[in-house]
Nucleic acid binder design. Structure first.
Lengths: 337, 337
DNA sequence: CATGGCTGCTTACACGTGCAAGCGTTACAC
DNA sequence: GTGTAACGCTTGCACGTGTAAGCAGCCATG
């Protein structure tokens, strides 16, 4: 980060006051429409004109320093390539937070270990932190609270002590898919796992869910197929699938499912006769392949709803942390299973 | 935005100073490892221990108020559903900016008209603004500069006066695709336009590019097919395509292309014999359909490169705004054209 | 022993803002 | 004519930080 001085300093409210021939307080009263401050109409106009002429813009840092609160909601997390579903969700959430008067700051992947991420977030004195990565510790939550953060939300599979929990029941995705395959009479199950390690936090729990379903049905072990989302890797996974004699595969999402389906077909394997496939996300594209892809449809809580939840939690920081399920699942059976 | 007072105020450097039995300046010297400030080793340890005990975290707003600069890079724009290509790009850019010592703030869709967006951005006193929506005006750029923003970047088809230009040559995407279809002997061209009005800023220029190619080849008018990314809409577009007797269609991107291709095939139209298709983005999924989808492959500048560019522009705000092409195109001919 | 420099720390100000309290003037009621 | 209230504006402090300048004490040098 470079630190050369600016060419010219931006106008402050003092400059506006000077130009309008009034005190700085008057400027503040006028520009903020403060209830208590009574200012005559012609003075108001002089102040507004002066502000416009100078191109005055208030200084958010100074304002929130004085006010003691920032109106920043920190969205911490990798903003990973987690598909259109979550992209749309963030988009919605961000718009809704804006409507509630908050500024959302995307913090990106968390630096460091232990408390470091929480410490870095706390520097911004956000009103709330929404953590979407599995890096939040109870100690981190405590640190945030002690530094004035009014609400901390964790968005993950399991709750974090002290934080409001937004549960994304990843295992249930696997369980729904696994139970479906088992109910259709499949017995040798496999699960496609993305090779990208950043997706492990999502794929691991889903795999566990399939295993749980298999265990309760009393079938054999569930195999894993690693896929790095290239055609070559797809062919390898398809070959391995045939070797292992799998007859039902749950794929991490529809994109991976489509790749595996094509690779299996290229190998002469009949889908769904020999191998049944289930994806996740219900992408439109999954309906374009033949056979049409079966999938686990997922609906997230609306951004507006979550924004309201966050606003309430900020309003009452003393309320005990709640738990909210973010995800609604439904199995959509098409032709691939 | 709710504004109840916090339960307890966070510790400040004054609290740390009191606990360590030193002055506040000493605390600052120790915690920032300031070169000029000379502090004895045992005092350093006392200060560090006190800071740890209180859970002290510096106040970013106060710090940047005092410093006069923020290290914030504002990424303004809708963060629209613009596909995996741009998602990955933002992700990279954000990480690279972090590495350069900046905090990236995603501002989301811009509020208001005229100068309002620029005014809202300026409140944060960002070191740089990167605007990815066509809402930046020369007056807005000027306002930002006058309020201390050291570098303004516009990311769009055409440059904006006063701002560094990151050109995304959308028309060229259409031109490349159109020229290809024309070279293959197609004469009745069509272009698929997403119904989502938020994508008009991208689809419009691409359409113009196709029209330019058609004009220079001296063919008839280029038709447009509106598509809202549902199967029903795909069927309608395919029917219209046949009615119009089109023999070559450029689709906004691969997803729309895949939908149209499937819809045409369901209608019994032979792709590419009767209608040739070209998409854009070179998605892996486009290779899974049969025939494999021809596409305009796009490569963006690396996030690291852009971050370096931004850093340099911040370091020297007086340098005249430069122009940089963000996009590299290449036509990938497969089987659908 | 006086001078000067170094060490280790403190005092004091500035950054830009919001708001409580104060203060002079006018208007009105008694 | 005097008390009182409302109006219209200003003075002054606080928010939490970084850093220039200053100030004792100490040692080395002359």
């Amino acid at each position: 980060m470079s630190n050369r001085p600016a060419a010219t300093t931006p106008p402050t409210s003092a400059d506006v006051a000077r130009l309008a021939g009034v005190s700085r307080a008057t400027v503040s009263f006028v520009l903020n429409d403060t209830a208590g401050g009574r200012v005559g109409e012609q003075t108001r106009q002089r102040v507004r004109a002066a502000a416009a002429e100078l191109g005055y813009v208030p200084h958010a840092a100074a304002r929130s320093l004085r006010a003691g609160r920032t109106g920043v909601v920190l969205l911490a997390g990798s903003a990973a390539p987690i598909g259109p579903l979550f992209s749309e969700f963030y988009r919605e959430l961000q718009g809704a937070l804006r409507r509630h008067g908050y500024t959302s700051v995307l913090y990106g992947p968390s630096p460091g270990e232990g408390d470091e991420p929480a410490r870095a977030w706390a520097e911004l004195r956000p009103a709330a932190v929404l953590c979407m990565e599995p890096v939040l510790t109870p100690a981190g939550v405590d640190l945030l609270h002690r530094s004035g953060t009014r609400a901390v939300f964790s968005m993950s599979t399991a709750p974090v002590a002290g934080a409001h929990a937004l549960i994304i029941d990843q295992p249930e995705v696997g369980t729904v898919a696994g139970a479906h395959l088992l109910a259709a009479g499949r017995r040798r199950l496999g699960v496609v796992i993305p090779a990208d390690p950043e997706l492990d936090q999502f794929s691991g729990p889903r795999l566990a869910g399939v295993r749980a379903a298999a265990a309760s049905a009393g079938t054999g072990p569930v195999e894993t197929l690693s896929l790095d989302y290239t055609e070559a890797s797809g062919a390898a996974a398809a070959a391995r699938c045939r070797e292992l004699g799998l007859d039902g595969v749950f794929c991490y999402n529809d994109e991976y499912a489509m790749l595996l389906q094509r690779s299996l077909q290229d190998l002469g394997v009949d889908v769904p006769r020999q191998v049944a496939l289930v994806g996740a996300d219900d992408l439109l594209l999954g309906r374009l392949l033949r056979p049409r892809l079966s999938t686990v449809g997922m609906t997230l809580l609306s951004g507006e709803t979550l924004a309201t939840l966050i606003d309430q939690a900020i309003a009452d920081p003393t309320a005990p942390p709640g738990t909210q399920n973010l995800l609604t699942l439904r199995l959509i059976t098409r032709d691939s299973s």
